[in-house]
Design a protein around this nucleic acid. Sequence first.
RNA 1: GGCCCCGUGGUGUAGCGGUCCAACAUGCCGCCCUGUCAAGGCGGAGAUCGGCAGUUCGAAUCUGCUCGGGGUCGCCA
Length: 602
Amino acid sequence: MYRDMTCGEPRRTDTGKIITLAGWVHRRRDHGGLTFIDLRDFSGLMQVVFNVDSAPDAHALAGDLRSEWVVQVKGTVQERRAGAENADLPTGAVELLVSELTVLNQSKTPPFEIEDDLHVADEVRLRYRFIDLRRPRMYKNLKLRHDVIQVSRTYMAANGFLEIETPILLKSTPEGARDYVVPSRVHPGSFYALPQSPQQLKQILMVSGVDRYFQFAHCFRDEDLRADRQPEHTQIDFEMSFVEQDDVLQVLEELYTTILRETRPDLEVPTPFPRLTYAEAIERFGSDKPDLRFGMEVSRLTDIASGSGFGVFESVVASGGVVRAIVAPGCADYTRRQTDGLVEFVRSSGAQGLIPIHISESAGKSGSLDEVTLDDIRSPIRNHVSLETLKEMARTAGAGPGDLMLIIAGPERVVNVAISNLRSEMGRRLELADPGVFRFVFVVDFPLFEWDDDRDGWAATHHVFSSPRPQDVELLDSDPGAVIGQLYDLVCNGVELGSGSIRIIDRAVQEKVFGLIGHSPEEVAERFGQLLRAFEYGAPPHGGMGLGLDRIVMLLAGEDNIREVIAFPKTQAAVDPLFDAPAPITQEQLDELSIRVVDSGG
RNA sequence: GGCCCCGUGGUGUAGCGGUCCAACAUGCCGCCCUGUCAAGGCGGAGAUCGGCAGUUCGAAUCUGCUCGGGGUCGCCA
């Protein structure tokens, strides 16, 4: 062993011990005859002292040390002089008086410093990820991720779930996301596809009688990246036999409360997790993943707007659009500059624009709208809409004197995206969401199908094996859009953590679903043949869930980007700057795979 | 594919038509220093301003294209 202790371990009780430590030179403070080194490893910092009087050789050598050199030091743990303790360090009561110094490895000057409060471009951090990860904050995130995995595994195993690995090299199921594909050498012209999730595999395992399966599954999707999306991510994936929706939700609630209790006991987690139907979530928050830590619910002004006299509103309503609003409490004094910023914000969310209505605080000392006059209102639509209509809008939205109404008009989907993003943004700006609370919510009763304009047909909201509610099976024939599925999402603080469903095991229902989505029997056989074949041999009722591990760790770590909790993530262009992946392969490799690369002409 | 923001010594920023062969902080190098812990003092090196093409008497600064990074809409069953 190169060491007797880690750098973060020595305490006052170790005083007098002769020990050897090893680590990285974090910082050097050279006072001439006396030199201090902060020695760092994963566990913390230890101050080591080189004194020219007590160890002249070591002291001389210490003068050569530079940041990030790897060294081994032997010496005596001693209490620091009175007044020289460092209360900021766990090891701050002691220091190591060095007798011997060994340089284990030298280091180039690092491209950036090892400190938590860092502002370095992501690309530089990723190119030098090995240095980036030396930052205590990054180590802490890696450790937290480890802890979440351990806690989850322990919980799942204790509850009868069997951890089973499934193939990474599998088959393309050309639906949903784009596949990452891998060419087969043995079968020229054929390709494996990396799984977007182990969906069919875990269902087959249920048919196999496994009863309960789980896995930390790597999932691959060749789609554009976001702050919360990487081309490969990890899911806590599970499936259970002989269960109904409530059984699955109960496991979820227990799993997440356990994770929270074990990893962040300081956080408040209201239980039981409330349930919100999809319809209610959209109506109240414009989103199926609302942050329930604050109110600011979205109201609907469509009816009032239709006869308001304001052309934009009227034409939007006439063309089937909606008008929705939120109220920013106490923001009536927002400047033009501030509201322009909000307009810009909603445009970046896809909306055409944003109509603010300021209701002066000085209006109506009673705090009601009754005494509000036109003079109290500031808005671009002030001169187009009657005072009564403006008041009616305010009343419906729940705005009063001192408040700022923010109104968005347009097609329902566009408005919902923009208004819910705006709600989140205002929540952030006004600091309405308590960061110490994790407010989980189950969003349930999703429609089974949604209309796909591109394909001009129905598409599965979740996936094709998700079951309708028993009472909605008849609607498959008469009104597919009204069919509610046994679909559920777990949402926390505005982040979608995962979704799942009870699966279809009834052959007739399954065929209707395929028919509605427009899959031909040939397509069905090609994509889902293996699962359907399995289902012919006795499939138990079952259901499950896929949960984003990266996202929950991100939330627990207090980060706002999953790259911070993934050891080696990719940039927005799906590049790994450390390995420079992806990269061309050699002609020999291409030949072996029977692949010819066509110059794209770029 | 669309939109927005960013790109200046190693790192992070300032400069936004001439006063900039570019400023500040930090890091780096050298010397001094026995109680520091973001050590301190003194001295020094280091960027032709992402790339290309334009506009202009003159471009880090304006325009176009392009490359890279970030955010987002679409997309992500």
